[in-house]
């Protein structure tokens, strides 16, 4: 499952980043490291996502949301 497919309100755990995302390293540095807990807060008009990682809130576009492999937290 990728982050883009997650419902607003859900909490998921990041398994890793797939594909050659140009900001791959920056995403890691912003806290999107394997094992990080991501909270899906909202979804924008064209597939963008608002997510929480640690205490930060970040807006991601659909492509970025599609490059994050996640697993649901029970």
């Amino acid at each position: 499952m990728v982050l883009r497919d997650c419902r607003p309100g859900s909490h998921v755990r990041l398994s890793g980043l797939i594909g050659s995302h140009p900001q791959r390293r920056r995403l890691l540095e912003l806290g999107f490291v394997p094992g990080a807990v991501i909270q899906v807060i909202g979804r924008g008009a064209v597939g963008g996502l608002v997510v929480g990682v640690d205490d930060a809130r970040l807006a991601l576009d659909a492509r970025t949301g599609g490059s994050m492999v996640v697993e649901p937290i029970a």
């Binding site: 995302h21 140009p22 900001q23 920056r26 995403l27 912003l30 963008g48 608002v50 930060a56 809130r57 970040l58 807006a59 991601l60 576009d61 492509r63 970025t64």
Partner: peptide
């Protein structure tokens, strides 16, 4: 560079 959106709110 054409970069995907990653923006802090």
């Amino acid at each position: 560079p054409r970069e995907p959106l990653v923006l802090e709110l």
